[in-house]
């Protein structure tokens, strides 16, 4: 299985993201989300942004993480292609991460679809046996 796959929804779109563990899934979900928006091969790593997020559950943390990235995409006009989870604390549902990318340049990064929000619709996050998987749907 690839790191993520696209899920169809009549009006919107979602992804299944896989990984060896939860932080891995967070990274692949973010990659999946940005690759729905534009071709990440055309994105360079020119700067990094640090993110610290605290939430109320593991699943909420995933939604908050993706929404945080969308916030910077929209307000700073930045597109990210790589993600590093520096610290992940499953006890208090927090993470500290680095997102790497560059400023949005529509001539090089045409937007295929604009994801406007990450939803709780049929949200799933499961782990076990050296594997983890998440399902998320986006509002577009």
């Amino acid at each position: 299985m690839r790191n993520f796959e696209v899920l169809a929804h009549t009006a919107d779109i979602g992804i299944v993201a896989c990984g060896r563990n939860v932080p891995d899934v967070f990274v692949n979900a973010a990659k999946g989300m940005f690759s729905l928006m534009t071709n990440l091969n055309n994105v360079n790593v020119l700067f990094k942004r640090r993110l610290c997020i605290k939430s109320i559950s593991q699943k909420d943390l995933l939604v908050d993480w993706l929404n945080e990235l969308l916030f910077y995409f929209e307000t700073d006009q930045t597109v990210f292609k790589d993600f590093i989870i520096n610290q992940y604390n499953p006890e208090n549902f927090s993470l500290n991460a680095t997102a790497l990318g560059e400023n949005l340049d529509l001539s090089r990064h045409p937007i295929k679809i604009q994801i406007k929000a990450c939803t709780y619709h049929k949200l799933e996050l499961v782990e076990g046996g050296q594997k983890a998987q998440a399902k998320v749907y986006f509002d577009v």
Partner: peptide, 8 residues
């Protein structure tokens, strides 16, 4: 109202 998903 939509009938086809975006990907389809």
């Amino acid at each position: 109202g939509r009938v086809l998903s975006r990907s389809r």
